[in-house]
Amino acid sequence: MRKFWCLFFMFWPVLAIWLCWVSPANGWWFPSIAPWELGQQIDDLFYLLLIITTVVFIGTQFALGYVLWKGSDVKPGRAWFSHGSHNLEVIWTILPAIILLFISLYQMDVLARIRVMSKFPEQASRDPIAEVTARQFEWRIRYPAPGKKLLAQPQPDDLYTVNDLHVPVGQPVMIRLRSDDVQHSFGLPHLRLMQDAVPGLVIPVWFRSNAVGKFEIVCKELCGWGHYKMQGELTVELEEDYEAYLKALQEKMNDDGYPADAENAVAQSDEE
């Protein structure tokens, strides 16, 4: 029975390592290669952490298994009493501290480029592309009218949509992230980006995608029972497509239903 417990506890770390090992081949890993360099740097940081933790994990689990296995045989005589080793404790305090210090210094540059607004590309921070407001359970989006700047206060000619964020490809873009109710988190898993939306704050978030395509927007903070409904779509498109999109949206926003020919009516209901 003692051997059983030893095997039982060893089974899980082996399973964990095996799962990580086979994941990439089975599509259980990252959704795709991040379509921008910061996303790739985030992945690099992730892999660095993964390597460090894997080495530590295998080492500690191996030691644990060894101790369990050795201890499963009942030896005759009295147990050996130990009050610990001062030197060992110093080592396993200082070593992780050094590793942690290294990690925190090493990731600082990437973190700053993502989070600190003065490090944002100037092009992005000068003209935020849209305001994204998270609310239970959807993303409300406000664009400025084509050719205009997005202002903090809503303007009469602003364009509105829901769950549908369009950005031009290859350009750094910045959004103003807000929340209407509780804490949400704006997540772009394909871009490895994630930023909490906090009620009362306007948080600038910048990113760039060098690939055209549609990517998922997810809420990464459990924000209520309908959390799963907070699905949005990021469409990265060519500059001209993006401009055409805004034009079409503007036309839709200004729709006064005139003239009311049947075709107009059908087109409208189809689109919606």
């Binding site: 704050l201 948080i203 600038p204």
Partner: peptide, 15 residues
């Protein structure tokens, strides 16, 4: 019709 300069500093501190 303000610019967002005032807000920017707030945002920077609170991120």
């Amino acid at each position: 019709h303000g610019d967002m300069s005032a807000e920017k500093t707030v945002a920077e501190h609170t991120v």
